[in-house]
Design a protein around this nucleic acid. Structure first.
Lengths: 160, 160
DNA sequence: GTTGAAATATATGACGT
DNA sequence: ACGTCATATATTTCAAC
């Protein structure tokens, strides 16, 4: 199933803009911010959730304070050429809690993984004990993040 | 300032695990889930926010339904070697709403950007009109995401 | 979509363990 | 540090316009 764009009016966009940065704002405060009445605001928010435009609400943690000091991007190329084999490998990779993102990309390598671990020792163990032993890993390149300048999930919503 | 790990007990971890996927759960429901009383749960959550362990609460949107069909990773190498020049360029990149992430990384290129745009035309315009004209962009490589297998911000918290 | 009122659920403080 | 209970507050939700 292909998900397609849903048309939004100015009030929807105002609501989504606020909720993207203040996910726990109360409906009455949100209503004030978007210049609508609380019932109208709540009805719109519920509709946006039902439409799947709002996927979920989450708490964003500070990874340094949880002890996750090592962020890295791992590029992979798979050697398997049967669809089922590739699918199985990807299922296993996606199920790993250390892997926060997994994308099929264009370029020199086929897959890009965003991996968060406690330290470089844990990263080395992850690569050598969990990734390398998997069948079909043809090439692998690790980039360590030295400094994170920006990390956001906020989509840029423009006026209708 | 270097942020360092904060020690968490089993109840803290239980609370953070729930809030990472259900950011809008009520305190009474959260208390039931972690087997604590509502006041104890609320006090812990407030403490975790005050400690900065919980950075913020956000709504996660479905990018396809907002019309953001094109996700890409752009690798950059800067040719400027004065700290101030590099700092200025990074400030401008980080301020761009299309750029969701910006990291200084090890490897062939120095910076990795995660960029979300409406379509490939908008990506082409972004690269040719906003990135390339900046001084000091020595090398640039774009990887288009063909398929997103996993996209999460959930940190893997293990028992104390 | 708005206003206002009522019902419900929630957070929060006091006290005892 | 936690649980229970009571109170005050905030929120949702309904009805009328």
């Amino acid at each position: 199933m292909v998900e397609s764009k849903i048309e939004l009016d100015a009030a929807d966009i105002a609501i989504l803009r606020v909720l993207q940065t203040e996910g726990r704002i109360s409906n009455v405060d949100l209503a004030k911010r978007v210049n609508l009445s609380p019932p109208a605001t709540l009805a719109r928010q519920k509709r946006l959730e039902k439409q799947g435009l709002i996927d979920r609400f989450v708490a964003v943690l500070n990874r340094y304070k949880t002890g996750h000091d090592t962020l890295s991007f791992i590029q992979l190329t798979l050697s398997l050429h049967q669809h089922q084999q590739i699918h199985d490998i990807l299922d296993r990779i996606v199920a790993m809690p250390e892997v926060l993102e997994c994308h099929n990309v264009t370029g020199e390598y086929d897959y890009l993984l965003k991996v968060i671990l406690k330290n470089t020792q844990a990263l080395e163990a992850f690569i050598s004990q969990k990734l390398i032993p998997m069948p079909g890993i043809a090439r692998l390149h690790t980039s360590l993040v030295l400094k994170e300048y920006k990390s956001s999930m906020v989509l840029d919503l423009d006026e209708p």
